[in-house]
Write a protein that binds this DNA or RNA. Structure first.
Lengths: 152, 152
DNA sequence: GGAGTTCCCTATTGAATAAGTAGGCATTTA
DNA sequence: TAAATGCCTACTTATTCAATAGGGAACTCC
């Protein structure tokens, strides 16, 4: 199960991305619309800003806007901000690889092998699908975002 | 990341399933071989027994054996014993469905839709691959275990 | 039949994480 | 310059993780 924090982040991001171009949404507005505790949401939006996904304006008529286009922000990227590595085992994480302690042979580890298959399958979806796709309800399949096409 | 408990469970299961037919493995033996804290491992093996996966004999020359054939025990089944529902959202779990609180429309929830795709992909692997497959290093693909063929 | 070995069961602990709460400072603009 | 907004840090409370601890129950083998 993903954390509430991550779920709130997705709700907020989808709302901000769906707002009319250039129009900022305030944290209070989002908080009200989705009944997310306001102070908690502020922390979340701040994390998204630090990650370079959102931009913000302060003061009256301030709020949050997308810094990058919604169809370049994948579900995987957002999830990693709030949950850390998505890999089921430390030895399967590309971004933050760590050997399993007491592992004798990584290459012959059945657990690693099987979970690797499962992780590959879910990663392929999470890193391919973007906030933009979700809003447009793009059917899953061919049009992959740039990063993934390059990485693949 | 999966818990240590689950990882230990897989190590133990793979060892027991790999043992010569009818030959019991003791918790101490497994504990020594994989440097798993003995008392902790006992709890784990007990859970696997209660779940109907292992059988045990007490006293001298006791130990644990598989109750069901290794190729009927899927990774998903074992994982659920130790981690609870594998679904990323409560509203995506078939086995223990729960509505997300404050959810307005499940059918129109983009988060549910996208995570549903990802979960489907990983579930298809975890529920199809068995302890037996892992030991035999069966290539992933065609020969699904019975339960999955029926459920699908 | 008793010693030794094994599994069985429950309770407790210490650290980390989750999910917020709280309070106030900084900046902008009407 | 006042009101609204974002920005930052600290704290709290409950839960889960990863063991540890201590003993009881059953079985086997001499």
């Amino acid at each position: 199960m993903i954390s509430n924090k991550a779920k709130y982040a997705f709700r907020a991001l989808l709302a901000i991305a769906a707002a009319p171009e250039g129009e900022a949404m305030t944290s209070s507005e989002i908080s009200r619309r989705y009944t997310i505790p306001h102070k908690f949401l502020e922390q979340i939006l701040l994390d998204l800003k630090k990650a370079g996904i959102l931009d913000s304006r302060r003061g009256k008529s301030g709020g949050y806007v997308m810094l990058r286009p919604a169809d370049t922000v994948s579900f995987g990227e957002v999830l990693r901000i709030f949950e850390g590595p998505l890999a089921p085992l430390p030895c399967l994480s590309r971004q933050s690889y760590r050997r399993c302690e007491d592992c004798v042979s990584e290459a012959n580890c059945e657990i690693r092998r099987e979970f690797g298959r499962s992780y590959d399958a879910s990663r392929q979806v999470l890193d391919a699908r973007t906030i933009g796709d979700a809003l447009a309800n793009t059917p899953f399949g061919t049009p992959l975002p740039l990063e993934v096409r390059r990485a693949g």
